[in-house]
């Protein structure tokens, strides 16, 4: 409890206090300004854009990574050595630091990068695709890389859930003549629900605070199109010198993350209870 208070509660309370001030990292004294930072947020178009991008990215990546996670988990749910090795490989992206992932993918997605070279040599494209150079493609690229990273995590979580399903259930279903799809719908999907709850919730939280991969891949560009809210907070604090306002935005992000996590967890838990 002491550690929790020291590393979680104290910073949150300090941030909440700062959000009510006009603190500037270069000035010694901050002034209490009440809710002014919060009312300013209502008219901040850059915040609205970053929040929209963050929420869409979180939804898309969470869905994609968890769907892929279940699929890969089913493929890798074997006990032989080769499958155990493949499980390790599947988890590898999650182990790598976001900065390293960003640098690796930057080379893959560059104008003369690996992806364009492969697509070009296969005759699929005649000119290099600007994966990171146009706003919509840059958003897609961020989603692609984030999905790649998170899929390792969701695969392992779902794999653990799959291994807790009694084999007898599948055997009984097969005796009753259930096909693959029916076995998935009636047994696998409901039985991995606890794993899905954890996986979806952590995926969402990870995406809502995503910073490192975006910072390396696009720096929030082009033209701020991939600026996540976390990136915007750093810019406000250390470029615009507005610690107070940055703290207010951070509190908003914390509130949004908490509300979304609670709703999603509640919905998914209900599904678990229904089992």
């Amino acid at each position: 409890m002491g550690l929790y208070a020291l590393f979680i509660l104290v910073p949150v309370v300090m941030s909440a206090w700062k959000s009510l001030t006009n603190e500037n990292p270069l000035q010694d004294h901050a002034r209490f300004i009440g809710a002014a930072n919060y009312t300013e947020m209502l008219h901040d178009s850059a915040l609205a854009a970053s929040l929209t991008f963050t929420l869409v990215l979180a939804a898309v990546v969470t869905l994609a990574a968890n769907a892929l996670g279940i699929a890969f988990a089913m493929l890798l749910n074997r006990t032989s050595l080769s499958f155990r090795m493949m499980r390790t490989l599947a988890f590898l992206p999650q182990v790598l630091s976001g900065v390293i992932v960003g640098f690796v993918w930057r080379y893959v997605l560059a104008q003369d990068g690996v992806l364009n070279n492969i697509l070009g040599s296969l005759g699929i494209i005649s000119h290099p695709v600007t994966w990171l150079g146009s706003p919509h493609l840059a958003m897609f690229s961020i989603a692609l890389v984030a999905t790649w990273v998170l899929t390792g995590f969701t695969t392992v979580v779902h794999l653990a859930a799959l291994q807790s399903i009694p084999v007898e259930l599948y055997q009984a279903a097969m005796v009753d003549g259930a096909g693959r799809w029916q076995r998935f719908r009636a047994i696998t999907f409901p039985m991995v629900a606890p794993g899905t709850t954890i996986s979806v919730t952590i995926s969402l939280i990870t995406m809502l605070k995503l910073y490192d991969i975006i910072a390396v891949l696009t720096s929030g560009g082009p033209a701020d199109s991939t600026q996540s809210t976390a990136l915007y907070i750093i810019k406000l604090a250390f470029t615009d010198d507005r610690f107070g306002y940055a703290s207010a935005v951070a509190m908003l992000l914390l509130a949004v993350s908490a509300v979304i996590s609670l709703i999603v967890t509640g919905l998914l838990r209900r599904r678990e209870v229904d089992l």
Partner: peptide, 10 residues
Amino acid sequence: TGALGVKYAD
């Protein structure tokens, strides 16, 4: 055409 995808070093 894809200038916004070209890094400074490149």
